[in-house]
Simulated scan of single mutants.
Amino acid sequence: MKLTDFSFDLPQNLIAQFPPEQRGQSRLLVLDRMQRSRSHHHIADLPSLLEPGDLLVFNNSKVRKARIYGTGAGGGRVEFLLLKQQDPQTWTVMAQRTKRRRMGTRYIFDDALEAEIIGEEGELRLLRFDRPIDEAWLDRHGHIPLPPYIRREDSPADSERYQTVYAAVPGSAAAPTAGLHFTEELLAHLTERGIESAFVTLHVGLGTFLPVRSETIEDHLMHEENYSIDEENAARIERAKAEKRRVIAVGTTSVRTLESAWDSNAGKLCRGEGATSIFIYPGYTFKVVDALFTNFHTPESTLLMLVSAFADRNFILDSYREAADQGYRFFSYGDAMLIV
């Protein structure tokens, strides 16, 4: 398939630059794959749109303040995005104007922290700091890694709003944004209706948000991301599958975790930690996920390709056009879809 098969036009004013005034106030477009029908709702309607016994699977990874700024020898400010910690002092990073960031170049960060580029991995760099940096340092000096289509600096409010209410395990360089719609009140209403919840962890990195640069999508290689599933949550998901209750993934990262961890021969999920570079695009056969709650995704992204594998590509793109016509807000801070 061609990359352009996943293109669509979107007016700039529909790209949400801020979250809704209150969490959980967004709109919800519901797609029925079999009937090829659409209906318009709000996030608060979700409990009534699901059935008792349904199981929602959330990604509980927590976004770290992974964007930091260093000063080079020439005095200019350079942005780095921390992707993966290799050891207490060394990180894989994405650097601003990557080609200029050469081996041996040194930078000074807040709190007199110094670092040197000690390795190159394609468009990524290995940055070694002169002392370990931890979550406490990042909380003081780092910035929320808002995506580039949000054209503003991060604010203190983003520290809360670009984070799910159930985030528990630090490690993501971007939010699992489908989960941003859920409030404690909504989760309680879902439980009252008999809808169960389970949690997996996938730390969002380049595998999720790196653009596809090959004209033929099958040539795209996904970067590896780490995930984990514990015994209690794996058993809960397996029980739902065995009882033929719907497993509803909240977000594409939950989809990729479930589909990567499923052992088809055993009919079970692999427990513990793992890594995935799974690339899901049209033609893929889903093994675990029966329905999907997700945001609207950027053109030509692997996320849009995953959603187009779950429902027919033309149906998805038609639905995106209708959402745009109806004034839905798009991308990380925008509205949501439920695909059943």
Rank of each mutant, 00 (worst) to 15 (best):
A115G: 15
E116R: 14
E116I: 10
E116D: 12
E116S: 14
I117W: 06
I118K: 11
I118M: 10
I118F: 10
G119S: 11
G119Q: 10
G119V: 01
E120T: 08
E120F: 08
E120S: 14
E120R: 08
E121T: 01
E121Y: 07
E123T: 02
E123R: 13
E123H: 14
L124G: 02
L124Q: 08
R125D: 07
R125W: 13
L126I: 06
L126T: 02
L127C: 04
L127K: 03
L127M: 06
R128E: 15
R128V: 15
F129S: 09
F129R: 08
F129H: 10
F129I: 00
D130T: 07
D130H: 14
D130Y: 08
R131D: 05
R131I: 04
P132T: 14
P132D: 13
P132W: 10
P132H: 08
P132V: 12
I133P: 06
I133Q: 00
I133H: 02
I133G: 05
D134I: 08
E135R: 11
A136L: 09
A136H: 11
L138E: 07
D139E: 15
D139F: 13
D139N: 11
R140K: 14
R140P: 09
H141F: 14
H141N: 10
G142K: 11
G142P: 08
H143T: 09
H143W: 10
H143G: 05
H143P: 04
H143S: 15
I144V: 15
I144N: 08
P145D: 01
P145S: 01
P145T: 00
P145F: 00
P145N: 00
L146Y: 13
L146V: 12
L146W: 15
L146A: 13
P148R: 02
P148I: 05
Y149S: 03
I150S: 04
I150N: 06
I150M: 07
I150P: 06
I150D: 05
I150V: 12
I150A: 10
R151G: 06
R151T: 07
R152S: 05
R152M: 01
E153T: 12
E153S: 12
D154H: 12
D154F: 12
S155Y: 03
S155C: 04
S155F: 06
S155L: 11
P156R: 10
P156T: 07
P156L: 11
A157K: 03
A157C: 00
D158A: 07
D158S: 02
D158N: 02
D158Q: 01
S159M: 04
S159F: 11
S159G: 13
S159R: 12
E160Q: 06
E160P: 03
E160D: 06
E160I: 04
R161C: 10
R161T: 01
R161N: 09
R161M: 02
Y162T: 06
Y162K: 00
Y162A: 04
Q163F: 05
T164N: 03
T164R: 05
T164P: 14
V165W: 09
Y166Q: 07
Y166K: 02
Y166I: 01
A168Q: 15
V169F: 15
G171N: 05
G171I: 04
S172G: 07
S172E: 09
S172I: 08
S172L: 06
A173H: 12
A173P: 15
A173W: 14
A173R: 13
A175D: 03
P176A: 09
T177P: 09
T177L: 01
T177K: 00
T177E: 03
